[in-house]
Amino acid sequence: MRTSKTTRATKAFEKALATRPTGRCVLRLYVAGATDRSRQALLRVRKLCETELNGEYELEVIDVYQQPILARNGQIIATPTLVREYPRPMRRFIGNLSRTAGLIVGLDLETKGKGAV
């Protein structure tokens, strides 16, 4: 009994690993005002999403100066911060996204992105 259950669970897990999570990628970019750093971060994340995610994404840009309560709710300390809300687990990328390699790894884009980068 136990062995058959275990094997079934293992199979399901392997299947889940093999398939990429479906659905759109939800991203939030928290910036602090219209600084150079904010602009760089925004441009880079847009470009990346277009090339790597083929438009399968939602990107929300939040200016913490205008909505400080969202900074609190989103547990933002550093700006700019890009938060991947979905798929889970949540990931935070702090900085102006000048090092895209880390971002691509972090966003699980490496399988698709190998050719592109």
Binding site: F93, G95, G102
Partner: peptide, 29 residues
């Protein structure tokens, strides 16, 4: 009360940043 949650494993550094987020939160509070 404002609890600042920092989870090292969630955070990845990708370039220049500052702690303006913290300042904004503190200022707002």
């Amino acid at each position: 009360l404002d609890h600042v949650h920092i989870e090292r494993s969630e955070i990845q550094e990708t370039g220049e940043y500052d702690l303006e987020g913290l300042f904004v939160r503190l200022n707002h509070a």
